[in-house]
């Protein structure tokens, strides 16, 4: 039984690390701000969920599980809030969400 939980936790941690890495590569290579936000949100939601889920399986039913759940819930609440604030601030500053050609960046009047 312990073996099964260990293997499940390893799988979760590995997949979580993979998604974190993919999100990081996307945030570096995507062409404009809004697509970069999309890539970064993968690491915040899926990566964090999988990595912290794997750690929860390692911890068992202890105080650490409660702390990990608190971190996870807090991140799930705050990362959409921060993304929304970032997108609205960038829109207000006049950054166009226009990937379609012709690509022009002009301030909104």
């Amino acid at each position: 039984m312990a073996m099964v939980v260990d293997v499940a936790s390893w799988v979760l941690l590995t997949v979580g690390g993979f998604f974190v890495l993919v999100g990081g590569i996307g945030a570096l290579r995507m062409p404009d701000l809004y697509t970069r936000m999309h890539a970064a949100s993968v690491t915040d939601s899926l990566g964090a969920m999988l990595v912290l889920g794997g750690l929860v399986l390692q911890a068992g039913i202890t105080l650490e599980t409660v702390k990990l759940a608190a971190i996870l819930i807090f991140m799930l609440f705050t990362s959409p809030t921060a993304a929304n604030a970032l997108a609205s601030a960038a829109l207000l500053a006049g950054i166009n969400p226009g990937l379609a050609k012709p690509w022009r960046q002009e301030p909104r009047s």
Binding site: A27, R36, A40, T43, D44, A48, S79, L86
Partner: peptide
């Protein structure tokens, strides 16, 4: 965005 990501 990048600094926020670094923090998470």
């Amino acid at each position: 965005l990048a600094v926020n990501m670094l923090g998470t």
